[in-house]
Amino acid sequence: MSDSGTKFVIGIYEDEDVLLNAISSVREKGVSIYEVYSPFPVHGIEDKLGYKRSRLSIAAFCFGFLGLSLALTMMIGMMTIDWPMIIGGKDFLPLPVFIPVTFEMTVLLSAFGMVGTFFVISDLKPWGIPKTFDLRSTDNKHVMAIEIEKNQMNEVELKKLLVSNGASETSIKVMDV
């Protein structure tokens, strides 16, 4: 094992319900979990890990509002201020005809803004390197990673704790994180 990098204890879990109970028991013992990796979204895992609700919906709202403002500014600027014209007998500020484009621009910016924010905060990019503790974590196993230095217990005690809570395998892994 190399000296660089951080040392982790890894626990492999087969079943999501066993995993959820294990997270609670491990955290009750005062052990801090680095992260849990799963092949699919496990219902209720964020509460067990104590994660706060994502604020991405707020980002979606803000970007949506930006889209709405841009659309109205564009259309009012072009059709009301720069070159006013009467089309179909409507006045120079025909708000009802602006509804479709305003709606589409709101949705477009909201969706792209939120997804862009999600990519940035989750560090997802084409050249991104995944933190793979175990290659099976995208297939059929749940992987719990515990950073040894951040905890009071030593390697052996941590491994024992994970096994007693249903881990099917445990190991030590050094990673650059």
């Binding site: 992260e35 849990v36 990796y37 799963s38 092949p39 699919f40 979204p41 496990v42 895992i45 964020e46 890990l49 994660y51 609700r53 994502s54 991405l56 919906s57 939120m114 997804v115 999600f118 990519f119 905060i121 989750s122 560090d123 997802l124 990019k125 084409p126 050249w127 991104g128 390197i129 995944p130 933190k131 793979t132 974590s137 995208t138």
Partner: peptide, 16 residues
Amino acid sequence: FGWDGAAKTWSRYETV
């Protein structure tokens, strides 16, 4: 995109 299935990312993914 360097996806690793972290619980935090899954949680955000579900919101998205």
